[in-house]
C-alpha cells in the first residue's frame, strides 16, 4: 500500500503550512521574546500568560473564538473584508493565522529563555565597543541565542504539523486548501479506510520521531542555555 495522490497533496500542504507558520512566527515572536526577556514592566506577567494560553486551552476554544473573530462580523473579518481579501475561515491563510496563535508559545519561550540567559553584560560590552542597537542584536544576541532559535524553529514547525482540532474548526477539509495530514487521517478513519490511515499515521510517527530525535541530539551536543526546552 503506497500513498495516493490525495495523500501526497495533503503532505505537501502540511509542509507548506508549517513552513509559512514557522517563518512568520520567528519574525513576529522574536521582538516579543526580546521584550519579555528584558522588560521590567508590570505587563510582563499578563503578556506571558496570554502567550502561554494555547499550551493549556483546548484547541476547540481557540478555534471557536478565532472562527468568530475571522468571520464576517468579527474584528479580523471586518478588517480582511475592508482590505478586499474576503474572510479567512476555510482558506489556507485562515489556517496560517490560527496555527500561528496555536504555536506561538512554542516559538516565543525558547527564544525568550535564550535571550534571558545571555543577560545584559555582552550587550553592554558591545555598546561600549561602539555597536548600535541593531548591530548588537545581529552580532551578539543572535549568535549567542542561536540554540534557542533552533529549538524554536523545530518546535514551531513540528507543533504546526501535529495540530488537528483548531485546523478542523478553522479550515475544515478542503483538498489542496485546508486538508492537512491530520485531517486526512481523520477522514480516512471516518470512511473506514484503515489501510490508508495506517500509512499516513506511520509517516507522521516517523516524522515526529525524527524531529524530536534531532532536537534532543542537538540539545545534548550543545549543552547551551536556553536549549532545555520541550522536555
Amino acid at each position: 500500500m503506497s500513498l495516493s495522490d490525495a495523500d501526497i497533496a495533503t503532505i505537501l500542504l502540511t509542509l507548506r503550512l508549517a513552513t509559512t507558520v514557522t517563518i512568520l512566527l520567528l519574525i513576529m515572536a522574536t521582538p516579543l521574546a526580546w521584550w519579555l526577556a528584558r522588560t521590567q514592566s508590570w505587563f510582563k506577567g499578563p503578556i506571558s500568560a496570554i502567550v502561554a494560553l494555547p499550551l493549556v486551552l483546548p484547541p476547540t476554544v481557540l478555534g471557536f473564538y478565532l472562527l468568530l473573530a475571522m468571520g464576517p462580523n468579527g474584528a479580523i473579518g471586518q478588517f480582511t473584508q475592508a482590505l478586499g481579501l474576503g474572510t479567512l475561515p476555510f482558506t489556507f491563510w485562515g489556517l496560517v493565522v490560527a496555527s500561528m496563535v496555536y504555536s506561538l508559545p512554542f516559538v516565543v519561550q525558547p527564544i525568550q529563555n535564550a535571550i534571558e540567559a545571555i543577560g545584559n553584560r555582552p550587550i553592554e560590552a558591545a555598546a561600549t565597543l561602539g555597536a548600535g542597537p541593531i548591530d548588537r542584536f545581529f552580532t551578539v544576541v543572535l549568535p549567542l541565542a542561536k540554540p534557542g532559535f533552533m529549538t524554536a524553529t523545530i518546535l514551531g514547525f513540528a507543533h504546526t504539523v501535529g495540530e488537528f482540532g483548531i485546523v478542523l474548526m478553522i479550515g475544515g477539509s478542503i483538498p489542496s486548501e485546508t486538508r492537512v495530514v491530520s485531517v486526512q487521517i481523520y477522514d480516512h478513519v471516518e470512511a473506514l479506510e484503515y489501510a490508508q490511515a495506517h500509512v499516513l499515521s506511520g509517516v507522521m510517527i516517523g516524522f515526529s520521531f525524527l524531529v524530536l530525535l534531532a532536537l534532543y541530539t542537538f540539545q545534548r551536543k550543545r549543552k547551551a542555555v536556553g536549549m532545555t526546552y520541550g522536555r
Partner: peptide, 29 residues
C-alpha cells in the same frame, strides 16, 4: 548613547563574546 561615546570599558569579569575567538573579539572592536 553609550555606543556613540568614545570610551573603553573593562568590566569586573572579562565579558568577552563567547561565540568569537580572542582575535574575533579584537576584530569586533
Amino acid at each position: 548613547p553609550t555606543h556613540k561615546r568614545s570610551l573603553g570599558y573593562v568590566f569586573q569579569e572579562a565579558s568577552l563574546f563567547e561565540h568569537l575567538t580572542a582575535m574575533g573579539n579584537l576584530r569586533y572592536a
